[in-house]
Each structure stands twice: as structure tokens, then as C-alpha cells.
Design a protein around this nucleic acid. Structure first.
Length: 270
DNA sequence: CGAACGACCTGCAGGC
DNA sequence: TGCCTGCAGGTCGTTC
């Protein structure tokens, strides 16, 4: 499900409601996620106050007074804020219960999501070797150009490597490469600085616009209020195999790159 | 070191 | 109707 815009949409949906609130209970129904949920979560969290809700790449950081909860939504995960009693579904794996009946509920059919509790998130193994944020100043055409020299990997895979840059998943990498006119299979080390500047700008533009639209809902993404995102209608290539390219009119192609689908326009991406 | 691939898990659409 | 296959927004660990 979620790439950076969906995670950021979730963060914005829950932050103001949770910051300053105390956790009254933690309920774990299914501890077998991508990694086992920390043991004795309830006793470790009860009474703790949420100081802030931050994001690093696709990880949400619920900063408590001392420790930090690291939440990843995996492929199909979502967090919702519930303000009234709601029936517990088959994939509702954990809840954090706050005052006045407010519940933060994690739902994840495929269970690729995760929950960690740590005192030092910045040095946590999951976060310590992440690359720069795509919307920050460190991520630029010059950065991509420098880091990609002599690398044979396809540029699509370079952008999806979280050590290079975080938060760029399969939807938005296809969209950004299309906007920049770059073929997804092109070797990363054989792309000019000028084209990388166009690509970095495209990444920032597509992610920024998707955040404005509340993310992309393909099947099952919903925000903290249970509403879908509205970026789907703006997708230019992702999922549009056989349809005309909206820029040049050629037929959009779907290919397989590794195990995953890649969509591109043979007419305007080289 | 870089690159390729399998692994984790469930749900759904499509073909027969 | 039911069974099978392939596909789905992520990313870690293993192998070459």
C-alpha cells in the first residue's frame, strides 16, 4: 500500500489527535508481523505520553516521553483513528487506546508491517542506514549523479533503494521516470547530470502533489479517518498498460522488472 | 562491494 | 461453484 505520500497522509491524520495524549492500554491480537511485536507491550506503554508523531522515509515514529515506537505499514497496512466503538476485524492486529475512547488501530492483511520499540530510533538498525529524504535539500540531481557513477543497476532500482533515497516506491518511481522522460531500465551510471536534475525535480513534484491529494488509493489505502486518497486520477503511467500516453500518445507498456511491474511509455522515455 | 532473487502473507481477479 | 495461477503500494537476508 503505502509509499511516502500515504505514510505522510497517515502521519498528518493522527499527529494532532495523539500529541500530548497518554496511552491507557496497548492491545496486541496478532504479534506475528514482519517481525514479532515487542513482548509485554501493554506494561511498557501504559501511561506513556505521545510527545510527537514524526516520519522517516516510510517509517512513522511515535515519540513517547522516553522511548519511540517505530511503525511500518508494509504493503497493505493502515492506521486509523477510531473515536467510537468499532467491531474488531480479522486483520486488526494491534490497538493503542487513549483517553475518551480514542483508539489508534493498526490493520494489515498481509502482515508485512512492523512495530518496534526503541530508545534510540536514529541508531536503530532499520533506520540507521537510510538515505536522504526525497523532499529535502540533500536529495538533488547532483546527489543522484554522484552516487550513481559506475553503477550498472537500472535507474528504477536505484531510486527504490532506501540507502540511496527513502520513500520512493513502485507507483511514484514509475511516475517520476515518466515525467523525466527516462527509461526505467537505463543503467544508473549512464545518465547525465542534466537528466538527473530533471529526475530529482520529478520525484519531488510527484511526491509533493500526491501528499496534497492525500495519497493514492489503488485498492485498500485509507487515511486515518478511513477516507481514500485522490492521487490515482493523476497517475500517468502506473497501471495504465495498453492505454495512450497522456503526453505523446504512444501505448503505455507494462514489463516486469525483477518481481515487480514497471509501466513506461516507449514513446517518450529513453 | 554490487546485483539478483527468494522470502514473508493474504486477498482478489481471471481463466478453465 | 471451485480450483489454480498470477498479481498487488515493501524490504530484508542470502547468494553469487
Amino acid at each position: 500500500m503505502p509509499e511516502l505520500p500515504e505514510v505522510e497522509t497517515t502521519r498528518r491524520g493522527i499527529a494532532a489527535h495523539l500529541e500530548g495524549q497518554r496511552i491507557r492500554a496497548a492491545i496486541v491480537r496478532q504479534p506475528q508481523l514482519r517481525w514479532p511485536v515487542p513482548a509485554r507491550l501493554h506494561s511498557r506503554l501504559r501511561g506513556r505520553r505521545v510527545a510527537a508523531v514524526d516520519r522517516r522515509g516510510k517509517y512513522l515514529l511515535l515519540r513517547l516521553d522516553r522511548e519511540c515506537l517505530i511503525v511500518h505499514l508494509g504493503m497493505s497496512g493502515a492506521l486509523r483513528l477510531l473515536t467510537d466503538k468499532r467491531e474488531v476485524g480479522r486483520h486488526d492486529h494491534w490497538d493503542l487506546v487513549f483517553d475518551r475512547g480514542v483508539v489508534l488501530r493498526f490493520t494489515d492483511p498481509r502482515r508485512f508491517g512492523s512495530l518496534h520499540l526503541t530508545e534510540h530510533p536514529e541508531s536503530h538498525p532499520l533506520l540507521s542506514s537510510l538515505g536522504p529524504e526525497p523532499l529535502g535539500d540533500e536529495f538533488s540531481g547532483a546527489y543522484l549523479y554522484t552516487i550513481s557513477r559506475k553503477r550498472q543497476v537500472a535507474v528504477k532500482h536505484l531510486l527504490m533503494n532506501s540507502r540511496i533515497v527513502v520513500g520512493v516506491g513502485n507507483i511514484y518511481v514509475c511516475e517520476a521516470l515518466h515525467q523525466a522522460g527516462i527509461h526505467p531500465l537505463r543503467a544508473a551510471g549512464r545518465i547525465s547530470l542534466l537528466r538527473y536534475e530533471a529526475l530529482a525535480a520529478a520525484v519531488k513534484r510527484v511526491l509533493g502533489e500526491a501528499i496534497e491529494q492525500g495519497g493514492t488509493t489503488l485498492r485498500d489505502f485509507f487515511n486515518a479517518d478511513g477516507a481514500p486518497g485522490y492521487f490515482s486520477v493523476r497517475l500517468q503511467v502506473y497501471g495504465r498498460a495498453g492505454e495512450p500516453c497522456l503526453r505523446c500518445g504512444n501505448v503505455v507498456k507494462r514489463t516486469a522488472q525483477g518481481q515487480r511491474g514497471t509501466w513506461h511509455c516507449p514513446g517518450c522515455q529513453h
